[in-house]
Write a protein that binds this DNA or RNA. Structure first.
Lengths: 340, 340
DNA sequence: CTGTTAGCGCCTTCAG
DNA sequence: CTGAAGGCGCTAACAG
């Protein structure tokens, strides 16, 4: 590997000049510039990124840690992050943890010291896990809720959606349509987002003076399959629900498929509402009523917070994204004869 | 951040001594050792990985680039790689490309210069993409087939399964059971693995003197959903196949579900065979007949090749993994009355 | 505008 | 066994 000195020697200039043309950090006369460029070409010189980072005291590498990059929600977040970050000259390493604490920690470990910033959706990980690995130097932004009962992000930036509020609004929409037997298909057990969406679900019911029917709250995960399974189970009940609120759009999409396959018409026989408003939600047939909290927005905001931090801001910022209810065609009043 | 000099000063020793106790690279008297350890503790000293890497001329970071980490096949490969690599003191960054050339290239770009080794399943990427980014210094091992028609891995290590042979064996198994109308649900269009499995499928048919019925070769992707969809399509034909060979186990699992949901009994009404033998294959009901080519093996071999390379081997190695046909309970002779 | 020089933080001979 | 000194490849002041 050729070094900057080799280039300087071949071009007959000093290393500083080479550095300047490489980094565009200073004016260099066209002639010298040309000679330098030729030398670089001839030697196939590539700056050593390690040395550069050590010298600049700044690593142009960022990490994004999410539970499941194959979930369209997260891949959308990732894309948004990359866009913002690219424009600022950083690269980002995306890590998928499958929601496993062990893998979350492992990533932090192996990344520690190699990145200057981190965007993290923490299923499990909390301050005590992160602090030892990510010291002073690194900027951390948390996306999504921390576990309830744990310390909330303190020194870091934090951006999250309003899970409780969104869930509540979704269920209130169903109630206002006249639904009384409303089911909830949950996300992965014990995760902050799903837990909070459940809270919102309960609250809406309580506020309307409706009972929370525990048998209509079924476990799940953030997948289409879980939506299918949960729906099949719900619709097989002696007294099935007339509406189902799903912890995210993927679940809702699965619910839609399952219901249709079983011969139920949506929304005539069953209303379905999702959460997030991923791209596919609008493309479903019927298009999905959902809580809009676009992942690209989340990703962009998180990345921007990170950029700000990296360029000097010190006081932590805590952002709650706004949501909106998007009423499309998967919800309608229940049939006059309740149940089936 | 405390540096090694701070520690040395506080402990009243030289930096070399600190370095030796940190790295266990030399005997240090118990007394000094203790003092150093205490200083490290007191200062919360952590070696700067960048500086260490620059000095040692060796980065302890590796990357694994795969199309889809949420696919159990690849996550299994990843786990195997991590195990091997961990034992050797390396960390590995896992990147999921979704099979997009753009993302493959982007990773190479951003990783270039930060890793000392790379394990890569290339859907699209070839020498011309990789060479510019991964120079002399980095060890590359390719897993799986390169695109046909492109240069095969030259200077790098290469480990792959026998896609053609495996597919051929699978189909021969079906033929030997008496099947004549055999369908194939493909993987993603144009990918090396799926293309080669199709070749094996064709060859088995041809060798047995059977016609290749093009309408029974349906497009797909390496997902359960594709298996479902393909199967629904096949079984809706006026003259449906009596057996279906799936480009991987995930597809086969989807096929199984779809067939059962449509009221077909497997294997009585339809034989199904998969490829790979992921863990779920044996747990399916009925357990899946498949081509065993265990991903953990692939991962382990790839990682070991990488380790060897990193510790000095120079001549490239090219390994073809053996496969075996695992006959379980998803295949049987066709019903006497062919078709349905 | 260009060249010289002193680090960045660590490792590693090489004397003592 | 321990400490001093040089170097990894690059950047950034600071002279000239």
């Amino acid at each position: 590997m050729a070094t900057i000195r080799d280039v300087a020697r071949l071009a007959g200039v000093s290393v500083a000049t080479v550095s300047h043309v490489v980094n565009g950090t200073h004016y260099v006369s066209p002639e010298l510039r040309q000679r330098v460029l030729e030398a670089i070409e001839a030697l196939n010189y590539r700056p050593n990124r390690l040395a550069r980072a050590l010298s600049r005291k700044a690593v142009p590498l960022l990490a994004l840690v999410v539970p499941d990059i194959s979930n369209p929600y997260w891949s959308c977040v990732a894309r948004a992050v990359q866009d913002v970050v690219d424009r600022n000259g950083y690269s980002v390493i995306v890590c998928s943890t499958d929601g496993l604490l062990q893998r979350e920690v492992r990533f932090l470990q192996s990344l520690s010291g190699w990145i200057s910033g981190l965007i993290l959706h923490a299923y499990h990980v909390t301050h005590e896990h992160i602090d030892p690995y990510m010291g002073e130097g690194v900027a951390v932004v948390i996306i999504g809720d921390f576990m309830a009962g744990h310390d909330q992000p303190r020194t870091w930036d934090h951006v999250r959606g309003d899970n409780e509020g969104g869930a509540q609004a979704a269920v209130e929409h169903l109630i206002s349509l006249g639904h009384r037997r409303i089911a909830f298909i949950q996300g992965p057990a014990g995760t902050p987002s799903s837990t909070r969406r459940l809270t919102g679900f309960r609250r809406a019911l309580e506020r309307a003076g409706l009972p929370v029917l525990e048998e209509l709250v079924v476990p799940g995960s953030y997948t289409r399959e879980a939506g299918r399974a949960g729906t099949e189970r719900l619709l097989a009940m002696p007294e099935p629900p007339t509406a189902v609120f799903c912890a995210n759009d993927l679940i809702a999409l699965g619910a839609l498929e399952a219901a249709q396959q079983l011969g139920w018409q949506v929304p005539r026989d069953l209303s379905i509402v999702g959460f997030d408003d991923i791209d596919e939600a609008a493309r479903a047939r019927p298009p999905l009523t959902t809580i809009r909290q676009p992942p690209q927005h989340l990703g962009a905001v998180a990345a921007e917070l990170l950029m700000e931090r990296l360029s000097g801001r010190v006081e932590p910022r805590h952002t709650v994204l706004e949501f909106s209810l998007v009423v499309r065609e998967s919800t309608a009043p229940p049939k006059p004869t309740a149940g089936r």
